[in-house]
Nucleic acid binder design. Structure first.
Length: 554
RNA sequence: GCGCCUGUAGCUCAGCUGGAUAGAGCAACGGACUUCUAAUCCGUAGGUCGCAGGUUCGAAUCCUGCCAGGCGUACCA
């Protein structure tokens, strides 16, 4: 609808120019807004004010010239107004909104989809938690944002791949092995002080127990190095399997699990480092190897090989991001915890140095989650190994509530996640509020069937009965869904869908309380059914993008 | 110190990349179930958009400087 108005305005401006009502043929981009206040119409444009200096005319005169030249054969516009500074306000004929309904019925699950991505290959990498412990709540937020983002991009015509990067190499894996091995030895009665720098959680003991069951005491006879290595591999594999399960119960499945170690095994890390050395992008100082990230806009240069010969995490990350582009992705999106933001300039530097444009790389920073219970902070200490895992949260409040709540904030604002609130079944909890719409409409349909009432289907005459303000309001809201999806993809902000759904839900509940769908008037009932079924479809459509279910009953 | 993020109603947050009189939910108060799920709705009240300048027809939104909070600033990941 907005686009239609845009075109009408543009054509009117051209007509006006041809007829000599407007001197200049220079037209700015037409901007059409939806005013907040009802009395200001359904759409407004600022074109007259923007053109004032070019046309050397008063905005009011320009507005008059444009209105005079509007050609609206279908009668979409019921009224136009010129408002004080020079806005032109358009009032849409109520009946002009209705054609969105058959579109929703036809397109169903695909309503709102588009091809703005033009099939270009895009990768979303998220969660990528170290395989040294279970996922916690913060990872859940990253998972919810990443998965929703991937769904939205797919819906907008991108060829999306979801990837999980496994940090299965380097020091933290060694620490994991040591932690498990020490617990293992404790199981055989050794009296060992468990070091602070080892992983403290109970899951480490559990893993040690599993190894004991499997291997008996044989590890004690091996060289420590070998035993630690075995424990590390065993534990990492086990933990990853657990992470995979947790994500699955959260409704998140990845297309690809990418191993950091594989970058070393295939020589990709060495290759890219050698390439940078040969191009003098890496130099030696104090026995370490430094990447000239400063030359690419970072604050200072960064170490890639330490003076003990070990590569840093950054070294494999250089190879990793290069490899993503080598695999043919036109754009890559990383979803990180906000505490990693300082890492962005150096990754961009590495991408530029590897010969790709840093503009093809985006990072979505997800702020931290404060876990609360009844308003009180839940104590969490990773060091002491006392934390509520994502799995705990899912089993307590359910995947739907968790996912939805994670998406009720802009990803760059910190989020309070209250476990008690997430379980509440009231207006305080937005998940139920939205899902309830779907359940209510399902219920209406069931009741209708019992009474032998069928949907009318698209019948312009019947549907044109829908002219209650609450109905027009609902239809307008339905019509704006595709734009919401598009903006959500463009700005990489999944929460826009969440807010849209809450808004649509509110419009529906208002309508529901004021008007009955199933009435004695057959024509009206059919038309209203047609409307609410469209609402149901859009609610389901949006919830699906967010990874939340749409229940038939609640 | 420097860098990034945040600051909007008592609380939790939106605000469509510069538009007109800044919006929701919660909490408070007052109402609505013999009718399709009251897990809902309607109404009342609540604001110097952190502060101060600047840009312009027009600023919560853009720029600059402060103030407050969070995070980062490793040869950790």
């Amino acid at each position: 609808m907005k686009q239609k108005i845009k075109n009408l305005i543009l054509k009117a401006a051209l007509n006006a120019h041809e007829k000599g009502d407007l001197p200049s043929s220079e037209f700015p981009d037409v901007e059409v807004d939806t005013p907040r206040i009802e009395s200001q119409g359904d759409f407004s444009t600022n074109i007259a004010m923007v053109m004032a200096s070019v046309q050397k005319m008063q905005p009011k005169r320009i507005a008059e010239a444009i209105i005079k030249n509007i050609d609206d054969p279908k009668g979409i516009i019921s009224k136009t107004e010129i408002a004080v500074p020079g806005f032109i306000n358009f009032f849409i004929n109520n009946l002009a909104w209705h054609p969105v309904l058959p579109r929703i019925h036809e397109e169903g699950d695909m309503y709102g989809s588009s091809d703005i991505g033009k099939g270009s290959k895009i990768q979303v990498e998220f969660v990528s938690s170290n395989p040294t412990g279970p996922l916690h709540v913060g990872h859940g937020r990253g998972a919810a944002v990443g998965d929703a983002m991937a769904n939205i991009l797919l819906f907008c015509g991108y060829d999306v791949e979801k990837e999980y990067y496994i940090n299965d190499s380097g020091r933290q894996i060694n620490t994991l092995g040591r932690s498990v091995f020490l617990r293992y030895r404790q199981l055989f009665g050794e009296n060992i002080d468990f070091p602070d720098d080892c992983y403290q959680g109970d899951y480490i003991r559990d893993l040690a127990g599993l190894i004991k069951e499997d291997k008996g005491r044989t590890l004690l006879d091996q060289k420590e190095e070998e035993a630690v290595h075995y424990c590390a591999q065993f534990a990492a594999k086990n933990i990853i399997a657990g992470i995979r399960d947790d994500l699955k119960s959260f409704g998140v499945e990845f297309d690809n699990w990418f191993s950091e170690q594989s970058l070393y095994d295939s020589g990709k890390v060495d290759n890219v480092l050698n390439d940078f050395r040969s191009r003098n992008i890496i130099y030696e100082k104090d026995g370490a190897h430094w990447f000239r990230t400063k030359d690419f806009g970072d604050e200072k240069d960064r170490v890639v090989v330490r003076n003990n010969g070990q590569t840093t995490y950054f070294a494999s990350d250089i190879a990793y991001h290069k490899d993503k582009f080598d695999r043919g992705f036109e754009r890559i999106i990383d979803i990180w915890g906000a505490d990693h933001h300082g890492y962005i300039p150096r990754i961009k530097a590495s991408i530029e140095a590897a010969g790709y444009s840093k503009d093809r790389f985006d990072v979505i920073l997800v702020q931290l989650v404060n876990l609360l219970r009844g308003g009180q902070p839940v104590a969490m200490s990773t060091r002491a190994g006392e934390f509520i895992t994502l799995a705990d949260v899912i089993s307590e409040v359910g995947s739907d509530a968790a996912r939805f709540i994670f998406l009720t904030r802009h990803h760059e604002s910190p989020l309070d996640f209250d476990l008690e609130l997430a379980k509440k079944k009231t207006n305080e909890n937005p998940v139920f509020y939205v899902q309830y719409v779907h359940a209510r409409i399902s219920s209406i349909i069931r009741k209708g069937r019992e009474k032998g009432i069928k949907e009318t289907g698209w019948d312009e005459k019947a549907v044109s009965i829908l002219k209650e303000p609450e109905e027009i309001n609902l239809i307008k809201s339905l019509g704006s869904y595709p734009e919401t999806v598009r903006l959500s993809a463009e700005f990489m902000e999944p929460h826009r869908i969440t807010f849209y759904l809450m808004n649509l839900a509110s419009s529906f509940h208002t309508y529901y309380n004021k008007h009955r769908v199933l009435t004695d008037d057959q024509l009206l009932t059919g038309a209203r059914l047609y409307l609410v079924v469209a609402v149901k479809k859009v609610i389901k459509n949006g919830l699906t993008l967010l990874g939340v279910s749409a229940p038939e009953k609640m």
